[in-house]
Structures are given as structure tokens and as C-alpha cells.
């Protein structure tokens, strides 16, 4: 874990660039992070990001994709459209959370 800048802000990140301190994340940063991976945030993206932020806070870990579908109510298909190829990791990156650790 080291300090680096994202959008002009000093934050803690891991080696890959995922933010590691929950409270350092802001919605402004999310837009910069999304830009970094060529995603333009829409309301639907925000709904997913807010869900995984809230769920992380409540459960202490990044939710799996299945949880975003079953608990967050966003269909799996839609998640693959919103965050192509690697939805779980891309969501976590934009939301300033660690990669999900669960297998399923």
C-alpha cells in the first residue's frame, strides 16, 4: 500500500491501483477512476457503485457479482453491459473498494 494521486488527490492505493482506504473515496474520484478505464458513468452505474459502497460498509467486504444481482437488484446481464468484461473488478475499482474475494 502506498500513497499516490488520483485526480490531484493524495490517496492510498495497492500495487494495481485499487484504492485501499474506504473514506478517502469521493464521488468526484469515482468519475476520474471511471475515466481511467473508459467508462462514462450513468445513473445506472451510480446505482451499482452506491450499492457496493453501502454493502461493503455493512458487511465488511466487497460484494460478489451475484450479490449485486440478488441483493442489489441489478441483473447480471446488465452489469456485464455497464462494466464490460470484468464487472466485479471494474465496479470495485470505481467504488474505491478492494477486489471481491469470494469465488462465486
Amino acid at each position: 500500500m502506498s500513497t499516490a494521486t488520483i485526480g490531484g488527490h493524495d490517496v492510498h492505493v495497492d500495487q494495481e491501483g485499487f484504492m485501499t482506504v474506504y473514506d478517502e473515496w469521493t464521488e468526484d474520484l469515482a468519475s476520474t477512476l471511471a475515466d481511467n478505464i473508459d467508462i462514462r458513468l450513468t445513473d445506472e452505474h451510480w446505482a451499482a457503485i452506491r450499492f457496493i459502497r453501502d454493502d461493503f460498509k455493512a458487511m465488511g467486504e466487497t460484494p460478489t457479482l451475484r450479490r449485486v444481482t440478488t441483493v442489489g437488484g441489478i441483473p447480471t446481464k446488465r452489469l456485464f453491459e455497464l462494466f464490460p468484461k470484468k464487472p466485479a473488478k471494474k465496479m470495485a475499482y470505481i467504488a474505491g473498494l478492494p477486489k471481491p474475494a469470494g469465488c462465486v
Binding site: 500513497t3 499516490a4 494521486t5 488520483i6 493524495d10 490517496v11 492505493v13 500495487q15 494495481e16 491501483g17 485499487f18 484504492m19 481511467n36 478505464i37 468484461k85 470484468k86 473488478k89 471494474k90 475499482y93
Partner: peptide, 15 residues
């Protein structure tokens, strides 16, 4: 200390 721009994970090339 010099603060560097954070790395960006490589998402699209690996798969």
C-alpha cells in the same frame, strides 16, 4: 517524498 499518479489496473487486455 514524491507522490506519483496511481497506477490503473489492466482490465481489458488480460482476458
Amino acid at each position: 517524498t514524491l507522490t506519483l499518479e496511481a497506477p490503473v489496473p489492466v482490465f481489458d487486455d488480460l482476458g
